[in-house]
Amino acid sequence: TEIRININGVTIHVRDASEELKKLIEHLLRLGADEKEIREVLHRWEK
């Protein structure tokens, strides 16, 4: 699944996002995570 996240005008594009990762990101956004925090989570997730 491919997702695009727009945070304050900055688009983060994620290829091959699992449903689990998608739910995690949606949850973090609801909690008010910023772009830097989302990128950090994505970076750690890929490892």
Rank of each mutant, 00 (worst) to 15 (best):
T1G: 09
T1Y: 14
T1P: 05
T1N: 11
T1L: 14
T1M: 11
T1Q: 12
T1S: 12
T1A: 09
T1F: 13
T1V: 14
E2Q: 08
E2K: 03
E2V: 09
E2H: 11
E2T: 11
E2W: 04
E2G: 09
E2C: 10
I3M: 08
I3C: 03
I3T: 04
I3R: 00
I3P: 00
I3S: 01
I3W: 15
I3Q: 02
I3H: 06
I3E: 03
I3K: 01
I3A: 01
R4P: 05
R4S: 13
R4A: 11
R4F: 14
R4K: 11
R4G: 05
R4W: 14
R4T: 13
R4N: 12
I5P: 01
I5T: 01
I5L: 11
I5V: 09
I5H: 01
I5K: 00
I5E: 02
I5R: 00
I5N: 01
I5C: 04
N6I: 11
N6S: 10
N6Q: 13
N6A: 07
N6C: 07
N6T: 13
N6R: 08
N6Y: 11
I7H: 03
I7T: 03
I7R: 01
I7V: 11
I7K: 03
I7W: 02
I7Q: 02
I7S: 03
I7D: 02
N8S: 11
N8Y: 03
N8C: 04
N8L: 06
N8F: 06
N8P: 02
N8E: 07
N8T: 04
N8I: 03
N8G: 10
G9P: 01
G9M: 03
G9V: 02
G9C: 02
G9L: 03
G9K: 03
G9F: 07
G9E: 06
V10R: 02
V10K: 07
V10F: 06
V10H: 12
V10L: 08
V10T: 12
V10W: 02
V10D: 05
T11R: 04
T11K: 06
T11S: 09
T11V: 15
T11C: 09
T11H: 13
T11P: 04
T11W: 07
T11Q: 09
T11D: 07
T11E: 10
I12Q: 01
I12N: 01
I12S: 02
I12R: 00
I12H: 03
I12V: 07
I12C: 01
I12T: 02
H13C: 09
H13A: 11
H13G: 05
H13L: 13
H13M: 10
H13Q: 11
H13E: 08
V14R: 00
V14G: 01
V14N: 01
V14L: 07
V14F: 10
V14E: 01
V14Y: 06
R15F: 13
R15G: 05
R15I: 09
R15W: 10
R15H: 14
R15L: 14
D16E: 14
D16M: 04
D16K: 10
D16F: 07
D16W: 07
D16A: 10
A17N: 05
A17W: 08
A17K: 02
A17H: 05
A17Y: 08
A17T: 08
A17C: 08
A17M: 05
S18Y: 03
S18L: 04
S18C: 01
S18A: 07
S18D: 13
S18F: 03
S18Q: 06
S18V: 06
S18K: 05
S18W: 03
S18I: 05
E19H: 10
E19V: 11
E19F: 09
E19Y: 12
E19A: 13
E19T: 10
E19W: 14
E19K: 08
E19C: 14
E20C: 06
E20T: 09
E20A: 09
E20Q: 09
E20H: 06
E20Y: 07
E20I: 05
E20R: 05
E20D: 09
E20F: 05
E20K: 09
E20N: 09
E20G: 07
L21A: 02
L21V: 04
L21Q: 03
L21S: 01
L21K: 01
L21E: 01
L21C: 03
L21I: 06
K22D: 03
K22F: 15
K22Y: 13
K22T: 12
K22N: 06
K22I: 14
K22Q: 12
K22L: 14
K23V: 11
K23A: 12
K23H: 14
K23R: 12
K23I: 15
K23W: 12
K23C: 06
K23P: 02
K23M: 14
K23D: 12
K23T: 14
K23S: 15
K23Q: 14
K23F: 15
K23E: 10
L24V: 13
L24F: 09
L24I: 11
L24K: 07
L24D: 04
L24C: 07
L24A: 10
L24W: 10
L24Y: 11
I25V: 08
I25F: 04
I25R: 00
I25N: 00
I25S: 00
I25T: 01
I25Q: 00
I25K: 00
I25L: 14
I25D: 00
I25H: 00
I25A: 01
I25E: 00
E26C: 03
E26V: 12
E26M: 13
E26T: 11
E26A: 10
E26P: 00
E26K: 13
E26Q: 13
E26R: 09
E26Y: 14
E26S: 10
H27K: 12
H27S: 13
H27Q: 11
H27G: 11
H27D: 12
L28R: 05
L28W: 04
L28F: 09
L28G: 01
L28V: 08
L28N: 03
L28H: 14
L28E: 03
L28M: 14
L28D: 00
L29D: 02
L29K: 03
L29N: 03
L29M: 10
L29I: 13
L29T: 05
L29G: 03
L29V: 13
L29F: 09
L29H: 05
L29Y: 07
L29A: 06
L29E: 04
L29R: 03
L29W: 08
R30I: 12
R30S: 14
R30G: 09
R30M: 09
R30W: 13
R30T: 12
R30E: 11
R30H: 13
R30F: 13
R30C: 02
L31K: 12
L31Y: 11
L31A: 10
L31S: 12
L31C: 08
L31W: 11
L31M: 15
L31I: 14
L31Q: 11
L31V: 13
L31H: 12
G32W: 02
G32S: 05
G32I: 01
G32D: 05
G32C: 03
G32L: 02
G32V: 03
G32R: 01
G32A: 04
G32P: 03
A33M: 03
A33H: 05
A33W: 06
A33G: 03
A33F: 05
A33I: 06
A33D: 02
A33C: 06
D34G: 10
D34Q: 09
D34P: 07
D34S: 10
D34V: 07
D34C: 03
D34T: 12
D34E: 08
D34M: 06
D34A: 07
D34N: 09
D34H: 07
E35Q: 07
E35A: 08
E35H: 08
E35K: 02
E35S: 08
E35I: 13
K36T: 12
K36R: 11
K36S: 12
K36Y: 09
K36Q: 13
K36W: 11
K36A: 15
E37N: 06
E37Q: 08
E37S: 07
E37Y: 13
E37K: 13
E37P: 01
E37L: 13
E37I: 12
E37F: 14
E37V: 13
I38A: 01
I38E: 00
I38N: 00
I38D: 00
I38K: 00
I38G: 00
I38R: 00
I38S: 00
I38M: 04
I38C: 02
R39V: 08
R39A: 05
R39I: 08
R39M: 08
R39E: 04
R39Y: 04
E40H: 05
E40F: 04
E40K: 06
E40R: 05
E40Y: 07
E40V: 05
E40N: 07
E40S: 05
E40Q: 05
V41N: 04
V41K: 03
V41S: 07
V41C: 09
V41Q: 08
V41L: 10
V41F: 15
V41G: 02
V41A: 14
V41P: 00
L42Q: 00
L42V: 14
L42S: 00
L42A: 02
L42G: 00
L42D: 00
L42K: 01
L42E: 00
L42H: 00
L42C: 04
H43P: 00
H43L: 15
H43A: 15
H43M: 12
H43C: 05
H43V: 13
H43W: 11
H43I: 15
H43F: 07
H43R: 13
R44L: 13
R44V: 10
R44A: 15
R44T: 13
R44H: 15
R44D: 15
R44K: 14
R44Q: 13
R44N: 15
R44C: 15
R44P: 01
R44E: 15
R44F: 11
W45V: 02
W45E: 02
W45K: 00
W45F: 07
W45C: 04
W45D: 02
W45P: 01
E46C: 07
E46Q: 09
E46G: 14
E46I: 14
E46L: 15
E46A: 05
E46T: 05
E46R: 03
E46N: 12
E46M: 09
E46Y: 15
E46H: 12
K47E: 15
K47I: 15
K47C: 15
K47N: 15
K47Q: 15
K47A: 15
K47H: 15
K47D: 15
K47V: 15
